[in-house]
Design a protein around this nucleic acid. Sequence first.
DNA 1: ATATTTCTTGCAAAATATTCCAAAATGTTT
DNA 2: AAACATTTTGGAATATTTTGCAAGAAATAT
Lengths: 258, 258
Amino acid sequence: MQPEARQKRIQDHLNRVEFASLEELARELEVSVSTVRRDIAALESAGGLRRMHGGARLVNPPSDEFAFSARDTHQLTEKEAIGRACAELIGPNQTVIIDAGTTAYHVAKNLESKMPQIITNSLPVANFFAATNRAELILSGGVIYPRLGVLVGPLAVEAFTKIHADVAVMSAGGITLDGISNSHGLLIEIQWAMIRAAKKVIFCFDSTKFGRRSVSPLCGLEHVHTIVSDWGAPEELVRSLRGRGLEVVIAPQESDGS
Amino acid sequence: MQPEARQKRIQDHLNRVEFASLEELARELEVSVSTVRRDIAALESAGGLRRMHGGARLVNPPSDEFAFSARDTHQLTEKEAIGRACAELIGPNQTVIIDAGTTAYHVAKNLESKMPQIITNSLPVANFFAATNRAELILSGGVIYPRLGVLVGPLAVEAFTKIHADVAVMSAGGITLDGISNSHGLLIEIQWAMIRAAKKVIFCFDSTKFGRRSVSPLCGLEHVHTIVSDWGAPEELVRSLRGRGLEVVIAPQESDGS
DNA sequence: ATATTTCTTGCAAAATATTCCAAAATGTTT
DNA sequence: AAACATTTTGGAATATTTTGCAAGAAATAT
């Protein structure tokens, strides 16, 4: 097989899995590890991927988690359903804040057709729209928090205190009747700024987050207007939330396209 | 079979498979490898396909990836050499501003070992460092300029007016004795802010940029401390620049660990 | 700390490209 | 149809590129 064809296959493979070990690629392409090594070196120069110890990873990953990780695919269909349902709550040409985090990312993916103006501190969201050109995307400044691809720090907070938005699409680590909490303390201050900047606040939780309390409390339920979750959300808690005057949207299980 | 008909079959075959090896084509058309070789040579000069080691490839692949700023393969080896040479000018633990643009991107790729603090408005640079903790990366805010993955606008300018850096690694569209110019007017204001924010200003140009003048003037040479280019830079202009007191670094053609 | 895996580098073997030439095929003229 | 000129083809000898391997260096894991 010719080098260029092989390199294209490597790039394609990586576009699907985001990270691949050399051995994996060598087995798949039926060439030696040395050859794969040379190929990914060439591809790195071209800029499509980045060489890592043990393999190669995509430079602009479409999501912030490795797609091959089994743990992620677990909640994937739920998050996609939530993404579709939440996107329907958002009208065309609105200004919408997108929080960092996988669930909010799935909402963003469904927003393309609404010609929105998006404001975010999430690198994956930015990458998604940088490629498509169907939305105006404002990225907050900040320092990159390595594992998550989130922008944090004073620059990020400041960006959100200076703007106003129609909607904020948020996600967090847990929700109880006492309020919403998140596991990453660094994000709390930014999320606060997001909530204050938006006229309407939507929180997205996959159903495993219900009744869970993470380390850092984020805000009380009085700051939230709408909650979107999947079909697995505990009925009783949903009822209580509605009793508090919150709109709770449950995404339907069936998927049309996938 | 006549040559013309055979060449048409080759082109058709390639339109289906995108890549084809010589042996494959020879078998399919029942002619010798030599003949196929001559045919694809003819087709290449006609422009329908591109010849490569082992076979041929469609010149215009149907599903070519979206063109992102970092994927520009023009003057690739030169830019990589410039990247290596320029990285050597930067000390460990420095605060470095990296301009958006392919040449500056190649500098960034060589900076990881220096434990730098990087400040940039380039999404490709951010993506490159997104998964490492060997560099602290600060991304300016701003709205994404779609094709290039650059952050522009007031947020971006403001981010650079508020910070200070040891070095700024810049790139631009052209350099003459009158000064430096760039083709994207949107970037001028940001680049100005970068230059003001840095104690030392390094400009990287591949040699094709010498003597070229782009539409928007950016700054005079008095704001520049160092210029890095490749071995193709015109001697006379280099001498003149040195006469003006500028440090001019010419990257060596072969890659050696100097 | 040591042990293991992965990376680099240099080299020989294999695969592919280039150039040239004679045989075969095609076209032209008598 | 025969003789000749022209083009095309297949193949051989020689460069060039690519590939796989192995030993030492570097990075990561234990």
